[in-house]
């Protein structure tokens, strides 16, 4: 009908001519499976990689377990603190906003330390020297340690410092905040975690 018709048929006949003398190659299936396999592997790796990258800080569920080597030489495991409310604060001595909350955290710690509340400070990519100096500067007395090999930060998927997680008595993450806090905010968060524990014995 149209010119196009003719060209389409040309294509078909051409293809037929080329295709004719070709027996099915042995091993062709192998190649198809190989290529398919490679594609699937690539897709899985990059799909999972992207999902992993896009994960954000956990805000509920069990808090990832870790053992913190404190600067005073103890090892504190999160698991051993079951039954207590745990405030996990990620900080660094090079971080400006952390400085504004350091004294507030210490004050909150002084207020709650005898009420079944534990504070853990975790210094992100910091050095012992600078971390010690920072703790001295702000008179911080609750246990602090460096996050060696950035393992704990990776578990909690932090995106910066300061970030604070409140863990309830059962070891669940109760709250998460990524702004510098004042004493009032910290107290409110701790109270919420404490009362939650009482309501569901």
């Amino acid at each position: 009908m149209t010119h196009l018709h003719a060209t389409e048929q040309d294509v078909l006949t051409e293809a037929a001519v080329v295709a004719e003398p070709t027996p099915a190659k042995h091993g062709a299936n192998f190649i198809v499976f190989l290529v398919g396999g490679i594609l699937v592997v690539l897709a899985v790796i990059f799909g999972l990689g992207l999902r992993h990258q896009q994960q954000t800080q956990p805000t509920e569920g069990f808090a990832p377990l870790f053992t913190l080597q404190t600067l005073s030489g103890e090892a504190i495991s999160l698991e051993s603190l079951r039954g207590q409310v745990v405030v996990i604060n990620f900080w660094a001595s090079w971080c400006g906003p952390c400085r504004s909350e350091a004294a507030e955290l210490e004050a909150a710690w002084q207020r709650y330390k005898d009420q079944g509340v534990v504070f853990l400070g975790i210094a992100y990519t910091d050095t012992e020297r600078n971390a010690q100096a920072y703790l001295q500067e702000f008179g911080i007395t609750y246990p602090n340690g460096l996050d060696y090999q950035t393992k704990i930060s990776a578990q909690y998927r932090i995106t910066g410092v300061p970030e604070t997680f409140i863990i309830d008595r059962e070891g669940h993450i109760n709250e998460f905040v990524m702004v510098p806090l004042n004493q009032g905010q910290i107290s409110a968060m701790i109270e919420r975690a404490l009362t939650k524990g009482q309501n569901q014995p």
């Binding site: 293809a15 295709a19 062709a28 190649i31 594609l39």
Partner: peptide
């Protein structure tokens, strides 16, 4: 695209 390439290739074209 790879699938189509393999298809044409297996047809011997």
């Amino acid at each position: 695209s790879v699938g189509m390439l393999l298809w044409r290739w297996r047809r011997g074209e």
